[in-house]
Nucleic acid binder design. Structure first.
Length: 636
RNA sequence: GGGCCCAUAGUUCAGUUUGGAUAGAAUGGCUGCCUGCGGAGCAGUUGGUCGAGGGUUCAAAUCCCUCUGGACCCGCCA
């Protein structure tokens, strides 16, 4: 926590100074100044005191700075101070300069000895639910945002020693599944796509789902057929259920292929049909009724319905007058299960082995399968990754949960803005944009950009670039490298921005491998690797005191902020902070590489120190890249 | 109608939580830098009434109010 120690010490110095001037209860902020030549930390307290003391900020700053300096006399050994100087600026700021000789020495040592302190989780059990795409279509770029946010969060929480379980909820008995069943059973779509190379999820989504929805308008009798299929699905009609299960699991496996390609993994799949059969809903309903969380309306427009009266959101129907549960109601038992309000009724078996050789589990009704399995439920807190259109429902679920539990905030909704198509991209897909700036995607209407298609296109582009630079590269390395570059471009572009902002997806722009992009980060890492390889060092024991150039100090400072950045990321659930951190590190490194000789430096002490610095950068970069799911490449 | 989110350079975005010093990147345009540690790089240049108006403050992109423009949610659909 090197940089934080520096902040703490500066804070102590300010407090000390204020005390000596007999000033109490003054709040202030200690922040990084806009420009580096003002120092490393600035305090605004003099501005705040101006009125109270009837003096100018400038005057107060200089008096206070002098008192602050006495703080360092109280330290046992001044050489252990992280603060190099405290000076009052005429503007009124008190500026602190850090001792990056000392801070740098500590952070480099921590990095190289693998002694970074990232354990903020202390084995806290966390459940993350993400992806949860209906199993009737292939993933589009909008789904990928969800997948990548969820997986990045998983990686960060895992690294900070949280005990993380990743769930993927599969709605295998809903309307959207009934839609493709209509296609197969009534419109006679073949059970296999005519072109064997077509992925089954794409076949269902692109050919059948869209077509069926078009036909509903021309032939309303199909809607009746869908309704009857849905009833059979819910009532457990053996023939239909088993056919549906065959279809959805084929789609699901293809969806998982796309997710795995993105280096995403899960622990458990929860099928809606299993939850229905498990009796969880019945228990939940009973409980809500008993505790008077929901009430039966005896008059008015909702007569005969069981409703929840939300304080802020008004009346919400939970059970219809015909006794069936609404869409939202089905999420309640799942939420209760996650936070431990109801007991886990499931038995488990391994569904499939994943790309990282971990097991992906599913629930099962097979009585014999209840041997050793990980403990999935419950968690200390649960994070559900769903886009912001679901905010209202998530809020109501959270409110219902709070009726069961006195402890708040165990159930979190990680909200994000949807991915829209830029008008250029929409037009290129033949969609009439009506001169709008961007277009909502819709699986049902066929308005979307397929995830695999984008990855394939990126892959092709990365391959061209890689071949240009490495004419001698062999086929396997070329394929692997190109794929990793494609994934890094995709993943980075989906998390580098603020979660709440919509992403306007433009196919052309997303194909860029330059600038603030995933491949830029990988390139910086590869450069580090080549330097280390050529340096042929084993020990990395260069002395930080030879790193006195401005750029070197900036790098040491940035490295020292790593633990703090990760801490903020987990506290605020903001994956972009990691992306921004590693981008800045890559930028600083590229600059360093450009302006200073490393291997060619004539002073051996300086050269050794620089090589050590490169190694530290490389380590931090490697950790950060893996946190955001980008594979560090030694060559590209 | 109620709720929620957004608006910063031609474009895509940081910065807003916690007010502070000359508002930063990337991309596009223009221009330099490879017999040199890898040019997927670096540097320079171009480009801003921070949607508008008002308020609070010594100080507002940031806080408050009003307005405008855009998106989304508000069903006994999922």
């Amino acid at each position: 926590m090197s940089f934080r120690k520096f902040i703490n010490e500066a804070n102590e110095a300010i407090k000390f100074g204020l005390k000596r001037l007999d000033i109490q209860n003054e709040s202030y902020s200690l922040s990084e100044p806009a420009k580096e030549n003002f120092g490393d930390l600035s305090c605004n307290v003099a501005f705040l005191l101006a009125k109270r003391l009837q003096k100018s900020p400038s005057e107060i700053a200089s008096i206070l700075a002098e008192q602050c300096n006495h703080y360092f006399d109280t330290l046992v050994t001044k050489s252990q101070s992280y603060v190099l100087s405290v000076v009052a600026h005429e503007s009124g700021y008190i500026n602190f300069k850090g001792d990056f000789g000392l801070i740098g020495k500590e952070i480099i040592s921590d990095i190289l000895k693998n002694q970074l302190n990232l354990d903020t989780g202390k084995r806290t059990k966390v459940i993350i639910e993400h992806t949860s795409v209906n199993p009737n279509k292939a993933l589009h770029v909008g789904h990928l945002r969800n997948v990548v946010i969820g997986d990045t969060l998983y990686r960060i929480l895992k690294k900070t020693n949280h005990d993380v379980t990743v769930l993927n909820y599969v709605d295998d008995s809903g309307l959207q599944v009934a839609d493709i069943l209509v296609g197969f059973l009534f419109l006679r779509f073949p059970v296999e796509p005519s072109d064997k190379k077509t992925k089954f999820d794409q076949y269902c989504g692109n050919a059948i789902y869209v077509k069926v929805n078009e036909l509903y308008e021309k032939d309303p009798s199909l809607i009746e057929k869908r309704k009857s299929l849905l009833r059979k699905l819910e009532s457990g009609d053996t023939e239909i259920v088993s056919f549906a299960s065959e279809i959805t699991s084929k789609v699901l496996k293809d969806q998982l292929r796309t997710c795995w390609r993105m280096k995403v993994r899960y622990d458990l799949l929860n099928f809606e049909s299993h939850i229905i059969r498990s009796n969880l809903w019945a228990k939940t309903f009973e409980k809500m009724r008993k505790e008077k969380i929901i009430l039966k309306e005896s008059e008015g427009e909702n007569i005969g319905c069981w409703v929840f009266n939300s304080i802020e959101e008004g009346t919400k129907i939970i059970v219809r007058s015909d006794g069936t549960a609404t869409y939202m109601a089905k999420d309640i038992p799942y939420a209760l299960l996650k936070v431990g309000t109801i007991e886990d009724p499931f038995k488990y078996r391994v569904f499939i082995k994943q790309w990282d050789s971990t097991d992906l589990w599913i629930t099962t009704s097979d009585e014999s399968k209840n041997g050793d399995h990980p403990i999935f439920f419950p968690a200390e807190y649960s994070v559900t990754v769903i886009d912001n259109r679901q905010s209202r429902l998530q809020k109501i679920i959270k409110e219902i949960l709070s009726k069961f539990e006195s402890k708040p905030n165990k159930y979190l909704h990680l909200s994000y803005g949807p991915v829209l198509l830029s008008s250029r991209t929409a037009t290129s897909l033949g969609i009439n944009t009506d001169y709008q700036k961007s277009t909502q995607m819709s699986g049902r209407k066929g308005i979307y950009v397929d995830a695999d298609f984008v990855l394939d296109t990126l892959y092709g582009k990365a391959k061209d670039e890689t071949m240009k630079r490495n004419p001698e590269i062999n086929g396997n390395d070329l394929d692997r490298t190109s794929e990793e570059i494609a994934i890094s471009a995709m993943r980075y572009s989906l998390i580098k921005n603020d979660l709440e902002k919509e992403i306007k997806f433009d196919l052309n722009d997303s194909l860029s491998l330059d600038g603030n992009s995933g491949p830029y980060l990988q390139y910086a890492y590869a450069r580090c690797c080549r330097l280390i390889e050529k340096a042929n060092e084993k020990t990395f024991d260069g002395d930080v005191k030879y790193l006195s150039e401005k750029i070197e100090e900036r790098i040491l400072k940035h490295l020292s902020k790593f633990e703090m950045t990760i801490d903020n990321t987990t506290k605020n659930l903001e994956p972009k902070l990691v992306a921004q951190y590693v981008y800045e590190l890559a930028t600083l490194f590229n600059l360093f590489y450009e302006i200073l000789p490393i291997l060619k430096e004539s002073n051996p002490n300086t050269s050794k120190a620089r090589i050590t610095l490169v190694e530290a950068i490389r380590q931090i970069m490697r950790i950060n890249l893996s946190l955001i799911g980008i594979t560090p490449l030694e060559r590209m």
